[in-house]
């Protein structure tokens, strides 16, 4: 047993919900988007309707998630029930300082033991921070391609910036692959060291493990959570 304890405080209920919405909306967007790009019989009307709906949901969900980060408290690291305002877990944390190289080395098998860190490791935090940017860019490029919004000055500005609707279409299309690549890596790393993180994120199921002190920045014990077993 080497991982840290998985407590609900790491992923408070509002963020579990936004994560679920992200998952469902992205799945709908990727499938319906592929059906729009590679049309099959009967699907077009449904695919377009779903795509636009899920796209709007994803953007709103993203904005809600970002705003909630300033109001909802969550654990700054795994293995603790202490909480801070969630946005602080997205900024550089003391637990992560000087650990970027260690994480890369660990992922590349050049380092044997697991780096200490905050709830999110350095590469993980950077890639997660890019997701809202990507969602907003996909939202804007999507609006530029949607007939009711495309003629607006806002969309025309971006269309002129990239060189027209065809370029925008390809950017939007490439964006989908960036999402797919992110999903590949995200699912791989979230499940590689066991299913406990997945159970916590989707089902809010806690799991015992090492206890980390976010003030002392070290592992200070182990919570076996044996009381849950009887």
């Amino acid at each position: 047993m080497a991982h840290l304890a998985h407590y609900k405080e790491a992923h408070p209920l509002p963020f579990v919900i936004t994560h679920w919405i992200n998952l469902v909306a992205m799945a709908i967007l990727i499938i319906s988007g592929l059906l729009i790009h590679f049309p099959v019989p009967i699907s077009m009307g449904i695919a377009r309707g779903l795509h636009i709906f899920a796209g709007i949901v994803l953007v709103i969900n993203c904005l809600v998630r970002v705003i909630m980060a300033f109001f909802v408290r969550s654990a700054p690291t795994a293995g603790t029930r202490e909480t801070v305002k969630d946005y602080k877990t997205w900024l550089p944390q003391k637990d992560n300082r000087h650990q970027g190289g260690a994480w890369v080395k660990y992922y590349l098998f050049m380092k044997k033991d697991h780096p200490l860190g905050a709830k999110l490791g350095v590469p993980q935090k950077i890639s997660y921070l890019l997701i809202p940017i990507l969602i907003i860019l996909m939202g804007i490029s999507g609006l530029c391609l949607w007939a009711p919004t495309a003629p607006s000055g806002f969309c025309q500005f971006f269309l002129n910036l990239v060189g027209g609707a065809m370029s925008m279409r390809i950017i939007h299309y490439f964006g989908m692959y960036v999402f797919i690549i992110f999903l590949f890596i995200h699912v791989h790393l979230a499940t590689a060291e066991g299913n406990e993180p997945v159970k916590l994120m989707f089902l809010r199921k806690e799991h015992g493990g090492l206890v980390y002190d976010p003030d002392k920045h070290v592992i200070v014990g182990e919570d076996k959570m044996e009381h849950l077993e009887h």
Binding site: M1, A2, H3, R97, H98, Q99, A102, Y106, F109, K111, K112, D113, H114, P115, L116, A192, E193, G194, E196, G209, L210, I219
Partner: peptide, 17 residues
């Protein structure tokens, strides 16, 4: 690398520390 079941053991001290 034996990390599938709970990951590798944690480093006792950060390399920088």
């Amino acid at each position: 690398a034996g990390r599938m079941d709970g990951g590798a053991d944690f480093e006792p001290i950060r390399a920088w520390d």
